[in-house]
Design a protein around this nucleic acid. Structure first.
Lengths: 222, 222
DNA sequence: GTCTAGCCTCTGGCATGCCAGTTGGGAACG
DNA sequence: CGTTCCCAACTGGCATGCCAGAGGCTAGAC
């Protein structure tokens, strides 16, 4: 099941989280605890603990004495999380321009090469993996574990909508160019430019969201 | 006990959290679950749920088959949380300068008046309350509930060190001046100035932390 | 005196049984 | 046929009993 799961509750948590993120459990859907107990061969306790954590992550809404439901996607919340992510990653990029060593910059360059290969092969899955890695390289190389946790928490929610909205064909090429602009600013040690480039990159994602939300209402609550 | 507690687990969670924040439970201390069960007159289940949530908040470290302990304060983590808070609140201040209505600005002005009265009366507790309110006015008036949650999560940890380090006598007067600078920039609709003013404000807190951490090592882990 | 081995206690994770609140649908009544 | 009321079947929260593992403490050997 989940790899890093040391307890049964962890295993159920990981599996449920993935199911929600991939859309296997759709927003508003009921979470059948009894079914999960049977599925994993555990008692209700680990399942309850897992659901409780997911409620903390705001991925499920639990109504006492009624039921637990996969939380719906709020367009306002998504916008706000993008705002937070932009503010935080922008500042992280600026910090990277100030503090990153040559070895760190090499890691970014290697990531950029991966992304480029993915674009040439038109492999969206590979590009997305490199995109996640790109942002994680920044936090890990700067020893910003807490910021990484905050961003992961945000990314989990944004991931739900990403699965829904399929980016237009040319998007990954544009995203690669945006990444490159960030890296160039970092390499040059220009904090202000790095921040702006990162914000432009995330702003583009926001624009994509708005257009799709406009095209397909009904996917979002509120 | 806790006011908004609808379940016993919530009550225990709130009480434990306050105890940790006020320093009643000191970092590294063991959490005696059996004692808590007796104290609150509940079984082990609500206590376990509460401790589990606190572990998620990273206020306690739970070692399976060994014990649950109040997490120690890491100086590096505190610095990083201040960084995050600065990035986020800076951008929020900028957004406030762009979007805030006259009614919102009145709320800020009223808060400033409160803070001023507290400074005149040299009432630190009142000033601190107004300080918390100041930052919360921004998130609530801008309808940034998620950002407010993130900041609350950070503030909880920063609150722990605030209880330890007593600010120097003149500090609250300086903090008031910093608040005023933020409000003036927001009133003027100058997003860039508002961001800078907010970052200066939080940067001053960071400087205070560094000096105290230098004066009194041993309070911090790592 | 020091080091080591083994037991003993204390911890958290889990299974299970029970309880109270909510709800949806059916029965009874107008 | 429509409305209302009641009940039965769900849900999650809680209490309790059991189990396995990690440490500390003691006793024994060197």
């Amino acid at each position: 099941m989940a790899k890093g799961a040391h307890s049964k509750a962890d295993a159920v948590y990981g599996a449920l989280k993935r199911a929600i993120l991939t859309g296997a459990l759709e927003p508003g859907g009921l979470i059948e605890k009894a079914e999960l107990c049977a599925k994993f061969g555990v008692s209700r306790y680990p399942v309850s603990a897992a659901v409780s954590r997911l409620a903390y992550d705001q991925l499920v809404d639990v109504a006492p004495r009624h039921g637990s439901f996969v939380s719906k996607i709020s367009l306002h919340d998504v916008r706000e999380r993008l705002f937070i992510r932009s503010a935080l990653e922008g500042e992280i990029a600026a910090e990277a321009a100030r503090r990153m060593t040559l070895a760190d910059k090499d890691a970014l360059a290697a990531n950029l090469a991966e992304a480029e290969a993915a674009v040439e092969a038109d492999d969206r899955a590979a590009f997305y993996a490199s995109d996640v890695a790109f942002h994680q390289i920044l936090t890990s190389r700067l020893a910003m574990a807490r910021a990484g946790e905050v961003l992961d928490g945000l990314r989990v929610h944004l991931e739900r909508v990403r699965r829904i909205l399929m980016a237009p064909p040319g998007r990954i090429r544009g995203a690669l160019a945006e990444h490159r602009a960030v890296v160039e600013a970092i390499d040059a040690g220009d904090a202000s430019a790095a921040r702006d480039a990162m914000k432009r990159h995330l702003g583009a994602t926001g624009d994509l969201l708005e257009t799709v939300a406009h095209q397909r209402p009904g996917l979002f609550a509120e």
